[in-house]
Amino acid sequence: MIRLTINGKTHNVDVDPNTPLLWAIREQVGLTGTKYGCGIAQCGACTVHIDGSPIRSCAIPAGAAAGRKITTIEGLASGGKLHKVQKAWIDHEVPQCGYCQAGMIMAAAALLQAKPRPSDADIDAAMTNICRCGTFQEVRKAIHAAAKA
């Protein structure tokens, strides 16, 4: 049994501690907004925040996340109000298929937390997520817009 604190709620999860956090979140806790894309920390679709930092949840064992503060895409909005990154994503119509966007948004939210006014170079360095639809042009615009919001 592992104790996972996700989006402010504690879950006692009956899972092999070596199970990747991604799959514990999806299959034991039942939050499917966090996506599987590669399983080897390449694509970033599984990005969540652990103690505020963006982490690729496919590459960290669930056991290692026990007792830490985990935020998923479902917990990004607070008090019924969308996070400014989510709002910018809607305003700029960033998503195409949308599958990678939860990870993209979590990475962008963490970037803005660390650098409230990121430069293009900051965005290039922080946003290493893969998007096969190719939404990058809108991602960049939306991050800048969220920074000003």
């Binding site: 499917t32 907004g33 599987y36 479902e74 989510q86 994503w89 809607i90 998503p95 966007q101």
Partner: peptide, 21 residues
Amino acid sequence: MKRLDTANKVTGKQVYGFDLK
């Protein structure tokens, strides 16, 4: 016109085949 399918794609609510229960 704004896309009709954006909102659920930024909150994790959109259900893809992978997410079906």
